[in-house]
């Protein structure tokens, strides 16, 4: 299913992004980044297994991803983290109409996790409460 393959590609990209930005964070923010990366890895692994049984090949991770802007400090790291979660949430949002049952539950949980983490990163950046109406 194309949207699930897109979701897997999105998780690959998010994992790569966290690998880059984590080097610029310390303390609680670094901890937050590590937890987020683990969440993305967990979904990537499940998706990879699920898609491996299908007819279409599961997309593999690229060796590297072009970032939307240079990550040079904690501020740009938090900005990228916010965008990673927004982007990953968007691909999961697109999965929802394509699936039912347990798969929709998984997609909704993923969308929710990304939305919650995006809001946390916005609060780290000083935007309170950091929520958006339609994540």
């Amino acid at each position: 299913m194309t949207s699930l393959a897109d979701a897997l590609a999105g998780e690959h990209a998010a994992i790569y992004g966290y690998g880059v930005l984590g080097a610029h964070l310390t303390g609680q923010a670094l901890n937050q980044a590590r937890q987020a990366e683990a969440a993305h890895r967990g979904r990537r692994d499940k998706l990879f297994i699920d898609l491996a049984g299908g007819s279409a090949p599961a997309p593999a991770a690229a060796p590297a991803y072009a970032l939307p802007f240079p990550v040079t400090d904690a501020t740009t790291a938090v900005k990228l983290a916010t965008q990673l979660e927004e982007r990953a949430g968007a691909v999961w949002h697109a999965v929802l109409p394509d699936v039912t049952g347990d798969d929709r539950r998984f997609a909704l949980d993923a969308l929710t996790d990304c939305a919650v983490r995006a809001a946390r990163w916005r609060r780290v950046a000083g935007h309170v409460p950091g929520t958006v109406a339609l994540p």
Binding site: A9, G10, H12, A13, G17, A62, P63, A64, Y65, A66, L67, P68, V78, K79, T82, Q83, E86, R87, A90, V91, R122, A125, G126, H127, G130, V132, P135
Partner: peptide, 25 residues
């Protein structure tokens, strides 16, 4: 090889600030 995922995949790639990101999202 560097993937252009972030630039090619749509919304968010050209945001310039956290506040903008929220609004544009």
């Amino acid at each position: 090889m560097v993937s252009a995922y972030y630039d090619a995949a749509g919304a968010g790639a050209k945001r310039s600030a956290g506040g903008d990101a929220m609004t544009r999202n």
